[in-house]
Design a protein around this nucleic acid. Structure first.
Lengths: 147, 147
DNA sequence: GGATTAAATGATAATTATTATTAAATAATA
DNA sequence: TATTATTTAATAATAATTATCATTTAATCC
């Protein structure tokens, strides 16, 4: 079982054990969430599911993602002037590189956060439960096309 | 001249040299922005300015903040389910500690970002121009009141 | 100081992403 | 297979922000 299949199974288990029904629409949505590494938006997920269920409603996609988010199985990345993007492949806080041109979002594997979090704790007196680290710039493709 | 006065003067200069007029409403808004360390929202700034100019419109506050943001003199912190908050006191990217309970936002002075940014550059191939680092948790006050 | 003019204000309409509502359909269970 | 609570689809509502536009005003020039 590869990583995505594992994620799908985890989502399924989590939904079932919390009393949620597995509808075909819901199944299609979590399949997309578990396999996508591109951080799709609700709209993009909606367009994909529509290929299989042409009558699906956008609200259905929104509600499913809300449920899955509440179960902690998808990470939401919200933005000022853009729609939210979702990571169901690795739904735990981690740094992202975000292209200001094409809106591509790429994961970073860097982890110097333990130290950093501890320092913020000491500096501010906050207890820290979560974080969000984004780097904004131009992806390699958009750097090239700007030359 | 203290830090806030300095910030006010910088904002004024920047506005004038870009051909913007200094209206009393605009002056009141940049005074608030330059002195606030609490990261006020548009609504909060609007309420404050209304004490001096009772007929000011919310749209005027929005438009002024947009102008000042475009000049790089205020930092916008946008959120998923909350209104944006603004930092005109130190409008350059820096880490924040954000209380999930009372929405207080506290600056962090930590700077291990040079290293980190360089590593993200190498890892992703992105050119990085900007970043956003938020830590979410409970401030000391809200920790106490939860006991 | 007063006339000129481009920009700003205030009031309100429009927009956009997201959430709420509700009647009809359906997955899970007995 | 019948029952029932959940889900779906369609659409209305919401909330933050932006756009529009007639009126007012700050800055500039004489």
């Amino acid at each position: 079982m590869n990583v995505s299949e594992n994620r799908l199974q985890t989502m399924l288990d989590r939904l079932k054990s919390n009393g949620y029904k597995i509808t075909p629409q819901r199944m299609a949505i979590i399949k997309i969430l578990s396999t996508s590494i591109g951080h799709p938006s609700v709209e993009e997920i909606y367009e994909q599911v529509k290929k299989i269920f042409p009558t699906i409603s956008l609200a259905t996609v929104y509600k499913n993602i809300l449920v899955i988010k509440e179960l902690g199985e998808v990470l939401e990345l919200a933005f000022a002037n853009d729609r939210s993007r979702y990571d169901g492949h690795y739904p735990y806080p981690h740094p992202h590189a975000i292209c200001m041109e094409c809106k591509k979002i790429v994961d970073s594997q860097l982890d110097i956060l333990q130290d950093f979090t501890q320092k913020v704790r000491e500096e501010t007196g906050f207890s820290i439960y979560n974080h969000r680290i984004d780097f904004f710039g131009l992806c390699p493709d958009c750097q090239r096309s700007k030359q």
